[in-house]
Nucleic acid binder design. Structure first.
Lengths: 156, 156
DNA sequence: TATTGTTATACTCTATAACTATA
DNA sequence: TATAGTTATAGAGTATAACAATA
C-alpha cells in the first residue's frame, strides 16, 4: 500500500467531491430549484403556486374529481390538499360540489374564471420556461422530458 | 366563432390539463421527489440528509472552505448552513477550525471519520440510484445529467 | 462600513394522527 | 369497519432581519 492509497488519493478530495456532480439526484435538485424560481416569477407574487397550479390543472382535466382522487394524482396526502383547495375556492377558481349518492365526497369543478386563469397561467409558465431554456434546442427539451418520464415510471 | 371555440375545445379540458405534462418544471419535480425518496432510503433513518451529504462533499473537496463560501456553493443562505454544520460537527464528521488572519471565519475541515462516512454514503447512494434507474441505459443516464447541467448553466 | 457566523423568527411544504360524518 | 374531508400538530427546508465580533 502506498502513501497515496493510504490517504485515498484515488478516491480522495477531488474525485470524492465531484461524485456529487455525477449523481442524478443532485443534478435534479439543482435544476429543479432554478426552474421553480422561474415558475414563481412567471406567476408573480400573488399568482398560483406550483401546487395550486397543478391541482387546478387536474381539476380542469378531470371535472368532478374528488379531493381524495386529486391528492392521489398529485402524490400528496389528502390532508395537505385541503389548504390548496381552500385557496383555489377563495380565489373563485373552483367549487366544492355535492356528489349525488355519496355525501362524504366533494366533487371539484373549475369555474369559468378558474379555467381562464389556468390558461393564462399556462401561457405565462410556458413563455417563461421557453425563455429560461432558450439555450437548449427543442430536441434537447423534448429529450429531457422523455428521460424525466423514464424516472417517473417509478412513481407509486 | 363556433361553439367549440367558445367553450375552448382546442385548448379545453383534455389538452389544457395535459399542458402540465409538457412542462419541464412539473416533470422535474415529480422525478426529483422519486429520486430524493430513494436517496433517503439509501442513507437510512439516521443517515445524512441530502443537504448534509452535499455539504460534507464540498468540505472534503475543498478543505478549509469557510461557511460563507460553502453556503454559496450549496446555493443557500449562510444562516441556513449553521444547523447543517452543527449536525456534521456533532457527528464528528468535520470540525470548525480557526483561520489565521481572519478571526471571523471558520475553516471547515473533514475528519477521517467524516471522509470515510462520505465515501460509504456515496457508495450507498450510487448503488441505490443505479438500482432505481436500472430501467434506463447508461447512455440515457449520461444524457439526462448532460441536459440537467444545461439547465444548471442558469445557476446564479 | 462591510463581512462572518449566529440567533430569532416566519413561511412553505409535507406527513401523521385523530376527529366527524357518512358509507 | 372503512372512507372522505377536515383539523391539529410537527418536522424539514428555506428566507429575512438583526446582532456581536471582527475586518
Amino acid at each position: 500500500m502506498t502513501a497515496d492509497d493510504r490517504h485515498g488519493a484515488e478516491t480522495g478530495p477531488e474525485s470524492a467531491g465531484s461524485v456529487l456532480e455525477t449523481l442524478i439526484g443532485y443534478n435534479l435538485k439543482r435544476a429543479y430549484v432554478i426552474v421553480q424560481a422561474d415558475f414563481r416569477e412567471a406567476l408573480g407574487q400573488d399568482g398560483l403556486g406550483p401546487r395550486a397550479f397543478s391541482a387546478l390543472s387536474f381539476v380542469v382535466q378531470f371535472p368532478e374529481i374528488t379531493q381524495s382522487a386529486l391528492a392521489r394524482k398529485l402524490g400528496i396526502e389528502r390532508s395537505g390538499l385541503v389548504a390548496i383547495v381552500d385557496d383555489l375556492e377563495r380565489r373563485g377558481f373552483l367549487r366544492r360540489t355535492a356528489v349525488p349518492g355519496d355525501r362524504r365526497s366533494h366533487a371539484l369543478v373549475a369555474t369559468h374564471v378558474g379555467q381562464a386563469a389556468l390558461r393564462s397561467a399556462q401561457d405565462a409558465v410556458r413563455a417563461h420556461e421557453a425563455a429560461l431554456l432558450a439555450h437548449m434546442t427543442e430536441q434537447e427539451r423534448e429529450m429531457l422530458i422523455t428521460l424525466l418520464r423514464k424516472i417517473r415510471a417509478r412513481e407509486g
